[in-house]
Write a protein that binds this DNA or RNA. Sequence first.
RNA 1: GGCGGCAUAGCCAAGUGGUAAGGCAUGGCUCUGCAAAAGCUUGAUCCCCAGUUCAAAUCUGGGUGCCGCCUCCA
Length: 469
Amino acid sequence: MPELKLFNTLSRTKEIFKPINDPNVKMYTCGPTVYNYAHIGNLRSYIFPDILKKLLTYIGYDVRQIINFTDVGHLINDADIGDDKIEKAAAEKGQTAWELSKYYAEAFKRDITALNISFPSKFTYATEYIQQQIDMIRTLEQKGFTYLTSDGVYFDTQKFPDYGKMAKLDIEGLDEGLRVDFKDKKNKTDFALWKLSPNDQKRQMEWDSPWGKGFPGWHIECSAMIFSELGSHIDIHTGGTDHIQVHHTNEIAQSECSAEGKFVNYWVHGAFLVLDKDKRMGKSEGNFIGLQNLIEEGFYPLAYRYLTLTSHYRSFLSFSPDILKSAQTSYFNLKKLIRSASEKNDDLNNEKAIIYAKKIIDSLLDDMNVPKAIGIMWDLVQDNEVGGKNKIDIIANYDQILSLNLLDFSDFPELQIEIPQEIVDLANQRWDIRQKKDFQESDRLRKVIQSKGFDIKDSKDKFDIVPII
RNA sequence: GGCGGCAUAGCCAAGUGGUAAGGCAUGGCUCUGCAAAAGCUUGAUCCCCAGUUCAAAUCUGGGUGCCGCCUCCA
């Protein structure tokens, strides 16, 4: 099997990937909290695991991937309120928390489908693993890693010597007090495993537990779902870089204390999408752009996928409508070149094609250097010494991993817009006039057509009508 | 305050020791009655300073600027 190198956050270096149980690969992708639509920055974090999964599959591994939905329990900012984002958003929309989270989970599935992100082996919902979470907390309790406070069960991070190792945390230096409900905790890094419902408030989402009615803490769900679906030791865990310090650090702590031994072999973290002014896009930042917003503006979801693939998954990706516009142009230009290669369909079967193919897979195997692979694809499709058939074979092969629909020519923007009869009539009229060499009048008619959103391309004995995009 | 990251042409972006991929935009040319499309073509000493080296965008040190995490966020 070809050698894949992955940048592992644990060592901060690229390591050669070795599965625990070859050829099986267990992979967990930290999913969304479903109290709103995913924005395009969130969605970026599901594209690179999709590439990773497809790459692993391509080189011969059997991948089992889980993506979770956090459909309960994330607090807004103050534990004393006892309110969480899902319940709050539901109240605002006049829905139940259950309806709301279901709705956004479905919206997420729709978005990733549009982006050609294939579904995991299984989607898991945190609320369907309450018992497993309680069981894990009990295990931790029995082993002495927890303590009770007035509002729940907490994990005592001091009992886990390796706490914060991956994040290289300097616990002394953490800004103490910034973390919620610090007042009741023994250490500032301690975190809630089970939160008790406030006495004076009835939550929509709450469950009985050995410690009283309440709901799971912020991190336990991932560990419980992983243990339940993949086991206590997995190969790959993906997520955004913002989770390194808290969420994943806590996952490691509770998991490795619950079961003995290593929890995750390879932690793979993706960088943020940033806006023009280098600002992070965030659900709380008020600069939210969803995939549907882009579609409404006339962008193609796969143009967005293409954009994300032109930048390395560990680098910031700059985003603006102009940047996406240029990516979309580039994307369709690439497809046009591929289309003309497919029309040629000559088989030169030369060494060069083989070299291109090798360069592409080598780039992908080097910590998923997708942007480099795409650059090589550009060189390939523009190389006149390589036959059309050879090009198509290579593109078809690697599009299994990139999933850009590079061989589907039915989605060109000019083919998507129906030409109104009025425009067709005008164009025919113009053509007749032009045949009579009345260029002044034919140019006038072209301007009329242009003002209605279409353009005319003349050639020797025919013309084409194309929408202006 | 602590920890981490980034700085490559107008814009996006590869490259991590051997003399700057690729894309978008722009200018020029060809084609065209004109245009569009298409094809060809044009461009950077890699934030600054110092050092190591035969050789640095790439390594080291020091600056400057920007960003992220430490509070739910990918």
